[in-house]
């Protein structure tokens, strides 16, 4: 019998594992402390972003602006000094909490070169900067990339993860925020640097985007992304899956806009949604199941998560036998 880690990595490498692995249940997740650390006086993080949180997650406070103008990023952002972080202590804590049977995922970031400038000055000014202050924006993107690459190197030295997870919401539910031309000229070279750094430490690169950025899948694969966490399912994703087969490894598969996602969905519908996810996106492997979209602590969400996991443990265990 193989371990959960080995099974997970088979799927992550585009193979057909023995069972459908679960992103939530079969991974140990490490995240460096600095992402959640806030200044007690202002309640802001190292980018001077103030966050608001509710049951469904956290978002930048729309009433708070981290800086007035983009050119103030140099004095506003206090990148943590990566070499001075207590890596041995963080590593020890992670190892203590980890299950050696599971795969090790290091979370590099959930907002990055695309989202951080926007989180700091808002969507309007953040996106207008692409046209209004392209040089300043690129200088900031470059500095964020340098920081993230340095963090990846420390992951390699201390955590030695199987997978490094990097997230940036380049798209909304109904489509990408930027054109392919902007992606290629402004963002792609920096994403590639991050992916290259991840490969250099011997880990697989997983990229997350909440929205529909299916039109960039070709580009993600080109820069070497190994696993795409794309919870926004649609016909376009299905077509890409058909085109690439197991070269396109997905974390997700569960349709967060289906009848199963609606509040009050029946147990039968929710259980069926797990079959649908696996049959549609993982019938030959290369799928790590994730029910991205069931969030919050409501009774409805809790029930759904229980049914989904239970069905994953039943159907997901036999589907490849």
């Amino acid at each position: 019998m193989i371990s959960k880690r080995e099974n997970y990595l088979m799927a992550a490498q585009g193979e057909k594992p023995l069972w459908v692995p679960s992103f939530v249940e079969e991974s140990n997740v490490f995240m460096p402390d600095f992402w959640m650390a806030v200044d007690p006086a202002t309640g802001t993080d190292f980018c001077n972003i103030r966050w608001v949180e509710n049951d469904a997650g956290r978002m930048p406070d729309e009433h708070w602006r981290a800086m007035e103008t983009l050119d103030q990023w140099r004095e506003t952002v206090k990148f943590p000094k990566v070499a001075e972080l207590d890596w041995p202590e963080m590593t020890e804590r992670f190892k203590r909490m980890s299950d050696p049977e599971k795969v090790n995922i290091a979370m590099l970031n959930t907002n990055g070169i695309f989202l951080i400038p926007i989180d700091m000055i808002g969507w309007v000014d953040g996106l207008c900067a692409i046209y209004e202050e392209p040089e300043e924006l690129e200088a900031f993107i470059s500095a964020i990339t340098d920081f993230l690459v340095e963090v990846v190197n420390y992951f390699g030295e201390y955590i030695q993860p199987d997978i490094v997870f990097t997230g940036d919401d380049l798209a909304a539910a109904n489509g990408p925020f930027v054109s392919k031309e902007i992606w290629r000229s402004l963002y792609k070279p920096y994403f590639k640097r991050i992916v290259d750094a991840i490969h250099k430490i011997g880990a697989l690169a997983e990229f997350h985007c909440c929205g529909n950025c299916q039109f960039l899948i070709d580009e993600f694969l080109e820069i070497g992304v190994d696993v795409c966490q794309l919870p926004e399912l649609n016909e376009s994703l299905m077509q890409k899956k058909e085109k690439y087969g197991n070269k396109l490894v997905l974390t997700g598969g569960w349709d967060r806009h289906s009848a199963a996602a609606l509040p009050g969905a029946s147990e039968e519908i929710v259980r069926e949604s797990v079959h649908q996810a696996i049959d549609d996106y993982g019938k030959n492997g290369a799928l790590i199941f994730w029910d991205g979209g069931i969030c919050g602590s409501s009774e409805d969400s809790q029930k759904k998560m229980k049914w989904v996991l239970d069905e994953l443990n039943k159907y997901g265990r036999v589907v490849y036998q």
């Binding site: 969507w123 909304a172 990408p176």
Partner: peptide, 14 residues
């Protein structure tokens, strides 16, 4: 129609 994206719409509105 998908001919332009959010930044292009935003700078027009601005």
């Amino acid at each position: 129609k998908g001919e332009i994206f959010v930044p292009e719409m935003l700078i027009a509105a601005k």
